[in-house]
């Protein structure tokens, strides 16, 4: 086989078949996929299913702590997991740029396969297109996921059971992914050992569901960060949200770079974090379960739902002062003043 992706790999001919056989079937290997049918034929699960889809265009495709393949699997698994569902199946769509190194593609596909395997999720169908050089940036990946959900978890994604006094929890440090990605854009100016937190959350969340924890809401604070999710929630449900500045888990490396670049960690993306809202009396139980899991070691409560300032997210500063946490307008830009 040649060493780069050619338009022929997307033509539907022999090269397409080779690509599917040598890369996807070989690495994603499972009985459903191996049937090589146009549609994956799946058993009908008991109860309802959750369906979600996401596109992955991350740049650079290889970043500290992960790559686009790992991200494409984690991202969709996490969207299912934070809805209270058990992720089961994924489909994957590739858009490949002519000239992409096949060794790079192999690495991303391996990374997808390993991530899906360790999360207990099967990649059961897919599609590949190749576009001319300069018509995409190396590769784009779409993943669609199907999960099963129990009726007692159905309220989780809407947050309709949230009430005043509820605790807001997070499973660890915020802003790692956003800052790790950003630092790669200025390799000569900024260097850091920070890694993206890119990880599958289904096990961490599954532990809570298995132990019948009462959860009123979950969402993963990816683009737009913690501030983005909380603002969405406060606007949609007209909730007052209080955040405590001194409880926010931020690594010194992230806060140091934030100071110098003019960023706020609340707006930086995360790829292995879940914001969880639960009744106040449930928070200790959840935190104790989380802290036993590697992805929840630094879990803590960062705020609560308030009766006041409905529709707004307000942060109490370390000194007792208050400030409004706005939704983000667009990606943060480094600034001098």
């Amino acid at each position: 086989m040649s060493d780069t992706v050619l338009l022929a790999h997307g033509s539907g001919g022999i090269k397409t078949q080779q690509l599917i056989q040598d890369y996807f079937f070989k690495l994603f290997d499972n009985p459903i996929l191996n049937e090589a049918t146009d549609s994956a034929v799946l058993d009908r699960p008991k109860g309802k299913i959750c369906l979600t889809t996401d596109n992955f265009v991350v740049q650079p495709q290889d970043f500290p702590g992960g790559d686009i393949g790992k991200l494409a699997v984690c991202g969709t698994i996490n969207d299912l997991a934070v809805s209270g569902a058990k992720p089961q199946y994924l489909s994957v769509g590739f858009i490949l740029e002519e000239g992409l190194l096949l060794s790079d593609l192999m690495r991303y596909v391996k990374s997808m396969a390993n991530t899906a395997k360790s999360a207990g999720v099967r990649i059961v169908t897919g599609d590949t297109k190749v576009v001319q050089r300069n018509n995409c940036d190396h590769l784009y990946i779409n993943t669609t996921g199907i999960g099963t959900i129990q009726s007692e978890q159905e309220h989780i994604s809407s947050g309709r059971k949230i009430k005043s006094g509820d605790a807001i929890l997070i499973n660890g440090y915020i802003g790692d992914h956003g800052m790790a990605i950003f630092s790669t854009r200025f390799p000569k100016q900024v260097s850091t050992k920070l890694l993206s937190d890119c990880n599958c959350l289904n096990e961490l969340i599954g532990d809570l569901l298995a132990k019948k924890c009462k959860i009123n809401f979950m969402r993963d604070p990816t683009r737009g960060g913690v501030a983005g999710v909380l603002n969405e929630l406060s606007t949609q449900l007209n909730l007052g949200i209080n955040i405590l500045e001194d409880q926010l888990p931020v690594r010194p490396e992230v806060s140091g770079l934030c100071e110098i670049l003019g960023f706020d960690p609340l707006y930086l993306a995360n790829e292995g974090k879940v914001l969880l809202i639960c009744p106040k009396e449930e928070s200790e139980k959840i935190l104790n379960i989380w802290r036993k899991h590697p992805l929840g070691k630094n879990a803590r409560q960062i705020g609560h739902i308030s009766n006041e300032h409905k529709g707004l997210v307000v942060m109490q500063t370390c000194y007792g002062g208050k400030r409004l946490i706005d939704p983000m307008i667009s990606d943060p830009l480094p600034r001098i003043c």
Binding site: M315, T317, C318, Y319, G320, K322, R323
Partner: peptide, 9 residues
């Protein structure tokens, strides 16, 4: 000044 919420203090 705004970030630390000083006006409210």
């Amino acid at each position: 000044i705004q970030r630390y919420g000083l006006p409210s203090l």
